[in-house]
Amino acid sequence: MYDFQYHRPASVDDAIKTLNGTSDGKILSGGMTLLPTMKQRLASPSDLVDLAAIAALRGIKADAKTVRIGAMTVHYDVHASADVKKAIPALSVLAGGIGDPMVRHRGTIGGSIANSDPSADYPAAVIGLGATITTNKRDIAADSFFKGLFETALEPGEVITAVTFPIPKRAGYAKFRQPASRYAMVGVFVAETASGVRVGVTGAGPCAYRVKAMEDALAKNFSADAIKDIKVPSDGLNADIHGSAEYRAHLVNVMAQRAVAAAK
């Protein structure tokens, strides 16, 4: 790790001000990706602006229609939240299956989403539930948030403050873990929401995306059988030593069926 300046502002405004004053500063949320990258000397930001002291970014609020999660809420808190378990049990399951206990007590929902790692779990839920991402500047709909590999709609100086999930009728999440890292090689979040059935896929492509054909089929018949024969195209999917694009495409189908079967 190279040397850097460390900042710990108390408000989002201060954080942005501090960030704007740096030559090549980065926001530090949970640091689950950024810190290992810096340790490997693959990233060398001049400054880290740590959001950990901003209390307003932490916490979970539920009402009749939505669950709002502060950007700095750690995965364990989402997993363990009684409100989340009651309103969107699949989201609790997803959060409880990220990484290991250490990651779950450090990693945050805002950090995970802002990074748009193709194998992160949360993007599947954000897409699958049609969440709204709130930043210091605006609200962004899930469908226009993830732009590509490690690429989002966030602009320079823009920080996620909260993610709001609509409460679905039912939802399920199933993931296939990469054998070494145990990240999601393919994760599928399926939800029956007020605005229709949504299928959010992570791991398979450069960033999280929806599978329209499955959504249509499930809207008619919300059962695993309804999507059994829907082949997902492998064009443009990720491929590495752990799984070819063709295998990932196949797994999207299998995991989608399992997510439907698990939905409640």
């Binding site: 054998p179 070494a180 890292s181 590495d240 030593i241 752990h242």
Partner: peptide
């Protein structure tokens, strides 16, 4: 499985993220 790139000889499984 310890895998090297067959052309360049770079170790593709150089960490526990890829070496299972």
């Amino acid at each position: 499985h310890c895998i090297y790139d067959n052309e360049t000889g770079q170790l593709l499984t150089g960490s526990y993220m890829d070496y299972a």
